[in-house]
Write a protein that binds this DNA or RNA. Sequence first.
DNA 1: TAAAAAATACATTTTATCAGGTATTGCTAC
DNA 2: GTAGCAATACCTGATAAAATGTATTTTTTA
Lengths: 209, 209
Amino acid sequence: MRYKTVIVDDHPIVISGIAGLLSELENIEIVEKFESGIALLDYIEDHKIDLILMDIFLPIINGVDLCKTIKQKHPKIVIIGMSSQSERSLVMQFIQNGGNGYILKNASFDEFKNCIYKAIDGEIVFSEEVKTIISQPLSEDLERIPGLSRRERDIALLLSQGKSTQEIADDLFLSFLTVQTHRRNILQKYKMKNVAELIAFLLKNNMLN
Amino acid sequence: MRYKTVIVDDHPIVISGIAGLLSELENIEIVEKFESGIALLDYIEDHKIDLILMDIFLPIINGVDLCKTIKQKHPKIVIIGMSSQSERSLVMQFIQNGGNGYILKNASFDEFKNCIYKAIDGEIVFSEEVKTIISQPLSEDLERIPGLSRRERDIALLLSQGKSTQEIADDLFLSFLTVQTHRRNILQKYKMKNVAELIAFLLKNNMLN
DNA sequence: TAAAAAATACATTTTATCAGGTATTGCTAC
DNA sequence: GTAGCAATACCTGATAAAATGTATTTTTTA
């Protein structure tokens, strides 16, 4: 039996690369390639598919939602997610929405092949780097870094725009003293010495915007 | 004549995709593929190369710095940058460091081909989406962003770590007053109100590290 | 090698931040 | 329905940063 496979990625080059790789696999048959999830959803209604390789960052509808939608109607289709960088929470979400595996695009050809074969056999698969990312930081990542509250985020954002305490108070129709308190709370929460260090920290952890 | 070409990308799949594309072009010959810039820098000393296609986001050394380093020694090599997302400032930086073009990875095969041919002919080329991104605020960006000097970068980096002027002075064995002057110069250069805004600006434009 | 850029240094005034403690009100989740 | 968090607000002293002006030396580079 040959597994009817589709590839979804908004980068033509990546599609071509994966197609080249898959063509080496005996029992895989690429039946279609898409640059967006919408096109795939159309196609899937009228055609039999066994395996989907999809990018997570797609225009219009993202990979996580796409996976969820497909799995609801077609739970037997094996879906493997891919992306360039991986965040722990993203991978978890994808799997919770029915994904059968997750591969980083910097994985080697052998990793790709192994993961695809194992996924077809019913395993949940991850490429090496994904494994290390999802296996470690339960204590460090989720517990250690508390989030900003709504107001704190507003204020942090304005701080990153160079606004002074007074200017922020005026912008948000708050007392100067309130803003001062929020600012102090943020600094204490992350044990930062001053606003400069705070902004660097927040930006590096994607906690602004 | 066949142009000796190398591909640099940390995603094996992308390398494979580009290689597939380039194999259709008569006068392009792929002589080597690398997953990091370090390996390329070694190779380039002993081998003739005419064209480099490189990812911008690479481990260890990034594409912008890699391009600069190569161009200093080998100005005749045509270098085209690639990335998945494009920020205006990043593209500009790349070109200012000697890059001959910039292509988004979601470009079509035809776009890739055209850009490569034109770049070989001496043009500075951009894929369609890059063009739209860089063409907008013409007047603002042509008075381009000046860079940080070495010392300024040192100081900006320490500022982003929350150090005070006095601490920086101690760290770098400088007078408090010297650091104060540098800090002021940096703020004035980018017309920033304070260090917080400066750090946000520098990080967003990848000017630290 | 001359000009430009970068790095160094000093002095002062005004303004803002940081750090300490305290307290009230409104949600909201258990 | 209450405990806990979030948001609001006040006070003050010490410290640091920002704004302004000037000037010498070293290094790059055209």
